[in-house]
Every structure is written in C-alpha cells, then in structure tokens.
Amino acid sequence: MGKFVFKSLLMLIFLFVGVLIGMNKANQGMNDMRGYSDSSFQTPVNIQTTEEGSLNAAVLGNEFSSFNLDEKKEKLEKAKSFNFFSEIGKLVADVVSSIAQAVINFFASLF
C-alpha cells in the first residue's frame, strides 16, 4: 500500500512539473508568434463601472453594456413574435400528456 502511494505521488509530481513546463513553452510560443514581448499588452476582458452604477464590459475590444432583464422581457412581449417550433413543441407535449392521462385512467378503472 505504501509503495503504491509513493509511486502515485511521484507520478503526480512528475505530471504537475510537466504541466508547468508546458505552460511556459506555450507562453514562449505566444510571444514568438506575436513577434515581440510587450508587458503592457491589453487584457482580453475589461470591466468598468460608470458613474450611474451600470457596468460596461469590453471583450476583445467589443463593448457590452449591462441591461435590465425586465426591460428586455417587456420588449420581447411587445414584439409578440411567433415561434413555430415552440408552438409545435407545446402541441406535442399536450398530446402526449393527454394520451398518458387516458392510459392511466383506463388502467385505474380496471382495478
């Protein structure tokens, strides 16, 4: 048992060191691919809070602003868009439910 634990820990340490070496090589590869080493390279995600208290985020240079979920829900309700697949799904669910209920009622009436 002790021999197994020792070998397992030794393998775990070996693999962990391998992961660290791989991360270092990946970093060097990214610097080589970029062509220069720049310590002031921009972060991919930038989040800022405005004076009004809302959040503005920029992901890879594309800006996103926070929104109110209730306002978006009201806007979608006003649009009253028709989703064909949603309606078909509701219809199929109702049919399956009614058939299952009829089968259950039939077997319940036998007993």
Rank of each mutant, 00 (worst) to 15 (best):
M1P: 13
G2K: 14
G2V: 05
K3M: 13
K3C: 01
F4H: 10
V5C: 07
K7C: 03
S8R: 14
L9Y: 03
L9I: 15
L10V: 12
M11F: 11
M11T: 14
L12I: 13
I13L: 14
L15G: 05
L15V: 06
F16I: 13
F16K: 09
V17Y: 01
V17L: 09
V17G: 05
G18L: 14
L20M: 08
L20E: 10
G22R: 03
G22N: 11
G22F: 01
M23L: 01
N24E: 02
N24Y: 09
K25A: 10
K25T: 07
A26E: 10
A26M: 06
A26P: 02
Q28V: 15
M30Q: 09
M30P: 02
M30T: 02
N31I: 15
N31F: 12
D32A: 10
M33A: 12
G35M: 05
Y36G: 06
S37P: 03
S37R: 11
D38H: 03
S39F: 06
Q42R: 03
T43E: 02
T43W: 03
V45L: 15
N46F: 08
N46V: 14
I47K: 11
I47P: 08
I47A: 06
Q48F: 06
Q48H: 12
T50C: 02
T50V: 00
E51K: 13
E51I: 13
E52A: 14
G53D: 09
G53P: 12
S54D: 02
S54N: 11
L55V: 15
N56T: 15
N56Y: 01
N56W: 03
N56A: 11
A57N: 04
A57K: 06
A57Q: 08
A58P: 01
V59S: 07
V59N: 04
L60V: 15
L60M: 15
G61K: 05
F64D: 05
F64K: 06
F64N: 06
S66D: 10
S66P: 03
F67H: 00
K72F: 09
K75R: 11
L76P: 09
E77A: 15
K78Q: 14
K78A: 13
A79Q: 10
S81N: 09
S81E: 15
N83W: 00
F84W: 05
F84H: 09
F84I: 13
F85M: 08
E87W: 04
E87Q: 10
I88Y: 11
I88G: 04
I88L: 15
I88H: 04
G89R: 00
K90L: 11
V92I: 15
A93R: 01
D94V: 12
V95C: 07
S97E: 14
S97M: 04
S97V: 11
S98H: 09
S98L: 13
I99M: 14
A100V: 11
Q101T: 14
Q101G: 11
A102Q: 05
A102V: 10
V103L: 12
V103T: 02
F106A: 15
F106P: 06
F107D: 03
F107W: 00
A108D: 00
S109V: 06
S109L: 06
L110Q: 08
